[in-house]
Design a protein around this nucleic acid. Structure first.
Lengths: 227, 227
DNA sequence: TCGACGTCGGTTGTATACAATGTACGGGCT
DNA sequence: AGCCCGTACATTGTATACAACCGACGTCGA
């Protein structure tokens, strides 16, 4: 169950330990190394990271506030197990926000930021053609991040990032045909933004998120049915 | 600067200390007992609450993840000082979400939940007539909470609550005339929801949040100009 | 007079130690 | 056999102790 991840000694940055641990755990969750339902034991984490329990606990509190883990008082903390209904709620909210974000991006029309998004889009399509499926998940995240930046609303950008992470807990990537459709939608969204067509950009973004949410939910329910 | 708040010994509930402290600090921030820019010293808080520094630190980490406090590594933590630009960003996002929430509430049309909102509305209008201005802030929060419940989207409800808190950091209440207009808008929103008019409900909610945001920002900039 | 430097108090960051609770396992009873 | 209960262990929650760093004050020198 637990890979002997063997604790690289925390990249030795000059930020506080609890912060490094917070980011490390966050990364592991995002990468799927820690999966929903997995238990986090403070002692083990402390030993793995080569620190005491205090920084670990503080990191855990932050993850808890982010909603990435569930704390059962005195019964241990677990990676949050996605409840399909909650995920659906989050997806609906994210659809609205992502749509608004696209509208703002179209309104701003910042050439530099949109060009950056275009580059990510090209890389995604290239990776798709080359069938480098394992990199598509990260590129997908990059693309949405680029779009978020293009709206020039930093708070919105942060919120969308957090929501993407929360609503995509279990699964890392899907199969090629689904990815192909997804990147086609990406292209349409970016085009609408470049055209300055706010209504279309918003509508396409919304439906994109909702569709991706449906696909994810299907897979989630299928996975939970087998367990 | 520091009132001798004298530390009632934490209501003696049976939840973990760090959690109680988290909620206590959250409350103090919401009530305005702790104001933006105020410093939080771990030792003092620990002594005030009659506990050690560990639970205090964990509570601080949670508040930090919520965005309610700013942490300057090794330089102390301070109640977040609202940057007008950021507040404006948050208000815009909140307007979109509150609008969507109203749309959902109109779509659901849950009689019980809408009746509850109606009762809050009546209490607010009564308090307005009686010029009990100091209670209007809490009632305003209650009304928006009731509306959030009426959309029957728990995640949205939580997010809106967190955003209201963050975007209304410094100020507790405003003057009577502003409040009167605000409660008039509340009535309009609820009426549209009761009519099942999704478009109107959304539009009114949006403009309500944006107007309230403008008023708050004016007062904030005025306050910062004097300091 | 003014600025560089050293020292010291105050505060944050981390480690270790102890208390308290939950869980799992096994013995005894029916 | 099956269930109840008690004991031991594992783990969380909290307290205390130590280390590292920041900032302010004062001294010294130009």
């Amino acid at each position: 169950m637990k890979k002997p991840h063997s604790s690289r000694p925390l990249g030795a940055a000059h930020t506080a330990l609890f912060h490094q641990i917070y980011e490390a755990l966050r990364d592991r969750i995002q990468r799927g190394e820690l999966r929903p339902g997995d238990r986090l034991v403070e002692d083990r984490l402390a030993e793995d990271f080569g620190v005491s329990r205090n920084p670990v606990r503080e990191a855990i509190r932050m993850l808890s506030a982010d909603g990435l883990i569930d704390v059962n008082a005195r019964r241990g903390v677990y990676i949050a197990v996605p409840d399909p209904a909650k995920i659906q709620e989050l997806v609906e909210i994210r659809a609205v926000l992502e749509g608004h974000n696209a509208r703002l991006a179209a309104r701003r029309g910042n050439p530099k930021l949109l060009a950056a998004a275009g580059r990510i889009l090209a890389r995604g399509q290239a990776a798709l053609s080359a069938e480098k499926i394992n990199t598509l998940g990260a590129l997908n995240d990059e693309f949405h991040k680029a779009l978020a930046r293009a709206s020039e609303n930093e708070s919105l950008s942060e919120m969308l990032g957090a929501m993407r992470l929360k609503s995509s807990l279990g699964f890392a990537m899907s199969d090629p045909v689904v990815q192909a459709q997804s990147w086609q939608e990406h292209a349409g969204i970016l085009q609408a933004i470049l055209d300055g067509d706010e209504d279309t950009a918003e509508a396409l973004s919304r439906s994109h998120v909702l569709k991706a949410g449906d696909r994810a939910r299907e897979r989630l329910e299928a996975a939970q049915a087998t367990s």
